[in-house]
């Protein structure tokens, strides 16, 4: 049924990665992405790939779920790869036809670029596959808590995000209902060109917006009646607390970064020497 849809792409299974604190996973993902841009040379990339393979294995999410995300960036990847191949200065591959404008340096760059992009997508997919949107919101709220000092309304933004997550299925169901009601009265959402179809959406969107505003007003009232007053003096039922394995994960991340840096300088020395 339409109301059973899941938001995000959380894959429900119990694994050490799933159990990690969402903040660890957020920091880990950012660090991994940074490391991809820092890493240099074959060994650096091998280390990154090794780390990625290890985490994927630990997460117990089937690999085909990870590769789904790759399809969406296929075109971007093709474009950037071909730009790299054709527009990098250097020695041409061969002296015939199109190969004349391809360079060895370009090919090398393109391969690295492709690997980097693939690993970047895989890395961030693991986070969304192993963390529920709610946990992610909690993690962002707590992890970005320091921004409150700069008057960024972190708590309010997180609350808005979690309320949005709660209401998306409800509003989808409502859209479905309005659509059926309008169809019953002769509205046509399916035929005609793009312009006509967009115009046909108007009688769908207006009632949807009105009802969304009404729901928002109701919800605000209900929240006030339950003593909501922002995050001043607010406690949490499930406060985020670092456990042993979270600290361990931070340790692994640090070790991984050091390894990447060492490999980078070793590689540079090797090239130079």
């Amino acid at each position: 049924m339409i109301k059973d849809i899941t938001i995000g792409q959380y894959y429900a299974v119990d694994s050490p990665i799933h159990r990690l604190d969402p903040r660890v996973k957020l920091v880990g993902t950012v660090l991994f992405i940074v490391s991809l841009f820092v890493a240099e040379g074959v060994f650096g990339y091998l280390a990154a790939a090794g780390a990625l393979a290890f985490v994927i294995h630990m997460s117990r999410v089937p690999f085909r779920f990870m590769t789904r995300g790759l399809k969406s960036i296929l075109i971007i990847m093709l474009i950037s790869v071909s730009f790299n191949i054709f527009f990098t200065e250097g020695t041409p591959v061969a002296d015939v036809l199109i190969l004349r404008s391809m360079t060895w340096e370009g090919l090398e760059k393109a391969v690295y670029m492709a690997i980097r992009l693939i690993m970047l997508i895989l890395g961030s997919t693991i986070m969304t596959l192993t963390t529920t949107p709610n946990a992610l919101t909690d993690g962002l709220e707590k992890g970005l808590g320091f921004l409150k000092k700069l008057h960024v309304p972190v708590h309010e933004l997180a609350m808005m995000m979690s309320i949005a997550l709660r209401f998306i299925p409800i509003l989808i169901e409502e859209t479905d209902k309005i659509m059926k009601a309008q169809t019953a009265r002769g509205a046509d959402f399916e035929s005609g060109g793009i312009i006509r179809r967009i115009k046909a959406m108007v009688p769908l969107l207006i009632p949807l917006f009105i009802s969304a505003f009404r729901r928002a007003a109701d919800l605000a009232l209900a929240m006030e009646a339950r003593c909501y007053h922002g995050d001043a003096n607010r406690t949490k039922m499930k406060p985020l607390r670092y456990e042993h394995c979270d600290r361990g994960a931070y340790g692994c991340m640090a070790a991984y970064l050091v390894l990447i840096l060492i490999l980078k300088f070793v590689w540079k020395g090797w090239i130079a020497g």
């Binding site: 949107p133 709610n134 979690s162 309320i163 997550l165 709660r166 409800i170 729901r215 109701d218 919800l219 209900a222 929240m223 339950r226 003593c227 909501y228 007053h229 003096n233 607010r234 406690t235 949490k236 039922m237 499930k238 406060p239």
Partner: peptide, 24 residues
Amino acid sequence: DNQIIANVVEEDVAFGPENMGVPS
């Protein structure tokens, strides 16, 4: 629908006490 705030039943029940600053 318009008075349930959280995405999980137990967390919604906790919403009031959380606002009141009750310990976890």
